[in-house]
């Protein structure tokens, strides 16, 4: 189980309704249902992932989050989760707004492009970074809109999206990110998890 999923599960209250956007093979949904008695639904673009979820008895809809979030009514979920997918959309802003329309709150995690190893790859070696969190080369990456934790922080401020909490993840370590430690955490977190409302 990915550490990120455990952290997300800990952020959520019990017995709520959650939509996992880009739910993959459903491992996060599984975790939420078992440990938190959460009513979880998923939206997933890859056919083989959707089938895996259905085999597991999870309720998942095959579809594209960029164009098909409109099928969910306003505020029909307590939380909507988007794990490390925001950067792959043509219009992250539109998706983010849709998440907050469908859910009362949203948890959005991003691979942090501000992580020091990412920065040094370009600075010292002059090459686009390939890391564990960002395993793709420049030519085959699905990530169209890479951003840093700081970028996301500024973006939410500019778009009047309320940030309830930010967590930085580096391996097994989790730390809370506030305005006063943003610069340093932006350098040492591999993943940023934003709780938005």
């Amino acid at each position: 189980m990915k550490k990120e999923f455990k952290v997300i599960a800990e952020l959520l209250p019990n017995n709520i309704r959650v939509l996992d956007v880009g739910c993959g093979d459903g491992s996060l949904m599984d975790l939420l249902m078992k440990e938190k008695n959460i009513e979880a639904r998923g939206l997933e673009i890859k056919e083989e992932h959707v089938k895996k979820c259905i085999y597991k008895g999870l309720s998942v809809i095959e579809g594209n989050a960029e164009t098909e979030l409109n099928q969910f009514p306003d505020q029909s979920f307590d939380y909507v989760i988007l794990s490390q997918t925001l950067q792959a959309f043509y219009s992250p802003e539109k998706v983010l707004k849709d998440l907050l329309r469908v859910g009362k709150c949203a948890i959005v995690s991003i691979p942090n492009f501000g992580y020091w190893k990412v920065r040094t790859s370009l600075l010292l070696f002059g090459k686009m970074p390939v890391t564990k969190t960002l395993p793709y080369s420049w030519h085959n990456t699905p990530n169209l809109h890479m951003c840093t934790i700081k970028d996301m922080y500024n973006f939410c401020a500019a778009k009047d999206i309320k940030i309830d909490k930010i967590l930085g993840l580096n391996g097994d370590r989790t730390s809370q990110i506030k305005k006063n430690n943003l610069e340093i955490k932006n350098l040492f977190s591999k993943i940023g998890i934003f709780v938005l409302s």
Binding site: V50, C53, I61, F72
Partner: peptide, 21 residues
């Protein structure tokens, strides 16, 4: 079929959807 899924979703039912290629 997706229209049906949209209606099911709007009604708050427990629905899965897959397209077989």
């Amino acid at each position: 079929n997706k229209d049906t899924v949209i209606a099911l979703n709007a009604a708050g039912t427990d629905v899965s959807f897959a397209e077989i290629k």
